[in-house]
Nucleic acid binder design. Structure first.
Length: 174
DNA sequence: ACAAGGATACCT
DNA sequence: GGTATCCTTGTC
């Protein structure tokens, strides 16, 4: 069983539930030089303006505008002037939330994820469709019960103790 | 332990 | 127009 996941599936649903659900789903990157697929194993949720770790905590700006669009779009930004970060926008329009893809089955670290899949900011704002060159598939692989772990998000100490402590990172053990 | 590296937001 | 800061990584 192999099903294409549509952008609409990321609208109007709880972002934390979506983040957990995204584990085991498959990223499909299509470019002129071919196709690369990878299973998602590590994600983080960023939810709403109140979440001080979320870029949208600064409100609606040129950069965060994409997070206020309806879910199912890619949000790609540059971090530390070095690494591209891949996020999937979730939720309805005007509610800023996104899920950071932090790791793949054979790749640890969000900067390496985008490197592996040849992803950069040119994809920012694109819908998660095959036509855009990056979409998702459900291969029916559900992580074994108990293999899903959760814990604090990485690199967000600046958000203060309350928000940095939220267990909004989800990953498949191993 | 720390430099690299560029965009962003928020000052003046 | 100046500057502190950033959802990191590789090499020191």
């Amino acid at each position: 069983m192999r099903r294409v996941i549509k952008p609409a599936e990321f609208q109007g649903k709880n972002t934390l539930a979506l983040a957990r659900w995204l584990l085991g789903k498959v990223l499909v990157r299509t470019t002129s030089s071919g196709r690369v697929t990878a299973t998602i194993t590590d994600v983080e949720a960023y939810v709403g303006e109140k979440d001080l770790a979320c870029h949208a905590s600064k409100g609606r700006t040129k950069r965060t505008e994409i997070m206020y669009q309806s879910g199912g779009r890619w949000y790609v930004y540059l971090c530390y002037g070095v690494h591209e970060m891949l996020n999937l926008v979730t939720g309805p329009a005007d509610y800023p939330a996104a899920i950071l893809v932090r790791g793949l089955e054979t790749v640890s670290g969000p900067g390496r994820v985008t490197k592996r899949l040849s992803i950069d900011r040119k994809l920012n704002g694109a819908l998660a469709t095959r036509a855009a060159g990056l979409h998702l598939q459900d291969h029916g692989l559900v992580p074994p019960r108990g293999s899903i772990k959760s814990g604090p998000r990485i690199g967000v100490d600046y958000a203060g103790p309350v928000w940095a402590a939220k267990s909004w990172r989800f990953w498949i053990e191993g």
